[in-house]
Amino acid sequence: MSAPLCKKEFYIQKFDFEHAGKAASDARKLLMDYGFDQQIVRRVAIAAYEAEMNMVIHGYGGTLILEINFEYIQLVAEDNGPGISDLKLAMQEGFSTASDEIREIGFGAGMGLPNIKRCVNFLGIETKPGRGTVVTMRVNLGPDAL
């Protein structure tokens, strides 16, 4: 596999709602600077933002890595959290373990992972209870972008 054209790491702090979304915003601006198609940028930005919010809310913080390759744009969200005990349930729209406090700021509706799945061509989730979660997301470039 060839080296990525660009790789950028963003560090996410747990419960830092003041800066939550900044990483996704910076990633979005980077993609716009590269001149990617608006729809591609929007899909990556939404996936990045949902992943970032998951790390802020559930994952005790972590790292979001953006890679631009020839064939696809990849995001890897690696958190320090408790892991997902029932992944099948977590992928269902409407299922959430978020607190009322989180719901008051507009999240915790159980749409995070389903939203990510909706935006990307590939979604891989590795999780172990007590050992954190790694979410890998890819949006294809070129003719099979959609």
Binding site: G21, Y49, G106, M111
Partner: peptide, 29 residues
């Protein structure tokens, strides 16, 4: 806000009672 991310299209006007910064971040994404 996850509903907004899921069900809107570019250039949609959002009406919301939320006043935290995430409402702007959501609109940006």
């Amino acid at each position: 806000l996850s509903d907004v991310l899921a069900f809107t299209r570019p250039s949609t006007l959002l009406l919301s009672g939320l006043i935290n910064i995430q409402v702007v971040r959501t609109a940006e994404m």
